[in-house]
Design a binder for these strands. Structure first.
Lengths: 251, 251
DNA sequence: TGACATTTGTTCGTATATCGCACAAACTGT
DNA sequence: ACAGTTTGTGCGATATACGAACAAATGTCA
């Protein structure tokens, strides 16, 4: 690929969109320039372009994103077969177990939810397709890391911002690598309140016919209601069965 | 705003992302060029830029979007207070009624789901934040149209692609305008299987302290289980109460 | 199978639009 | 009113988009 096959104006514009988050929802030109490292003039041009296209609003001082931005993420969810394919099976799984069931894939050091059947809220934050959680401390993240080589997994763990969300969170790379290897051997991962106190979850990998792990599915439950052993006993068989059904539908 | 305050490369790139949908998930350079109206050379540059940034994959022939695209839509959902603010109230509403509760805003002639508490699946398609439905035949759409002036609402209806999803779907503009005016007077909208056979829904507007309608909330139920009259009787009071609670939290 | 037609992808020179800088103007709060 | 910030603008240097020509792959028919 040649140098000129890269449209820097496009890349800059995308970084401007990503600069908006929960903490920074109303941003001025200078704010954006600071956050993205772009020149103020460039940031301004990106923001005015977004505004003109209807992706952003401008009150003369601050810019905010509009719901039109959701078209972009929706392009992925609707154009990728996996989320739609998995949804009915997650619904069944949630129905059978009485708990929330989700599917996710890896993007960098984060898992990205691609489908979800939420039964009742067990987590403090709301999860939807598109939501992200750190891979190192989530059950699906452990499963997806276990699908890679040790070297790749270690590199991702090393580059992760490994904060201890709870006293139980494992944060050291050797400790996490031991966990990843264990998950690889046993074929499932259990997280016991490492992400949030009171939240337990179990995940298994979903593999295509070539044996490549393409996603993970999980079930989350409230810790006081069920022990780790009970989770494995109660949910693992039905999850494995669901996983095999999904794998049978995959190409 | 001057001519040069518009980055056409950025705008073109965004149109490339939006070209991907359920029907077109694996696209060649020529496909994209046809769909977006861009030159093949330009489409190629946009796609290679997306690939280099990790937003797309390229197998030498076809391009597909990656989950990284979801970061963009997530920027909106996390940066906008409304979805997060509404979620717990939708959860309560869904809990109380035993049905799915959602919130949406208008984007052009479509409603966009910004939050949802899904109880059980009543629709054939899965709805999530970011999902879109045509405004003319959805309960929340009718409510949001009713919040505009007659002229604005009529213009949107005239520009809509009004297909009859079911035999009950209202499609003529005068008929829909009558409906919109009725909704404006009574303060709620009921859709009886106009979107999908077997699906009934009721919606009310959510207004801020200045009386501006900023969103709509709705409840969907299976038509055989409940008549239109029962829906209004059973759900309208609790929805109005939820709406007032939400309005109280708004600035 | 081989030759031709068609479609698709890539490269290139040039016209032109964008970038980044420096400066000017408008705000903000003291 | 003034210093400190933030936003808007003009301009030369530079990078991008366009259109066409070329190359490669694919499809078609005898």
């Amino acid at each position: 690929m040649r140098e000129t096959d890269f449209i820097s104006g496009f890349a800059k514009g995308l970084s401007v969109i990503e600069a908006f988050d929960a903490v920074n929802s109303r941003l001025s030109i200078t704010d954006i320039a600071r956050m993205t490292g772009l020149e103020r003039a460039t940031a301004r041009r990106c923001l005015l372009t977004l505004t003109q296209l209807g992706y952003a609003d401008y009150d003369g001082k601050f810019f905010t994103l509009t719901p039109r931005i959701l078209r972009l993420g929706h392009s992925y969810l609707s154009s990728t077969p996996l989320p739609r394919l998995m949804q009915p099976f997650l619904d069944q799984l949630s129905e059978k177990t009485g708990e929330s069931a989700s599917a996710s894939v890896l993007d960098g050091d984060e898992i990205v939810y691609i489908a979800r059947a939420s039964h009742k809220r067990v987590m403090s934050i709301n999860l939807n397709p598109g939501s992200r959680l750190p891979a190192y401390c989530s059950s699906m993240g452990r499963v997806l890391l276990a699908a890679m080589s040790d070297d790749e997994a270690r590199r991702i763990l090393e580059d992760s911002n490994r904060t201890a969300n709870t006293p139980r969170t494992k944060t050291s790379v050797p400790e996490l690598m031991d966990e990843v290897r264990k998950v690889r051997l046993q074929g499932y991962a259990v997280i016991d309140q490492e992400l949030e106190i009171g939240l337990c979850s179990i995940a298994v990998p979903v593999r295509n016919t070539r044996g490549i792990t393409i996603a993970a599915i999980n079930i989350g439950a409230q810790a006081p209601r069920v022990t780790v052993e009970e989770m494995v006993e109660r949910y693992l068989p039905v999850m494995q069965s669901t996983r095999d059904t999904i794998a049978g539908v995959l190409v």
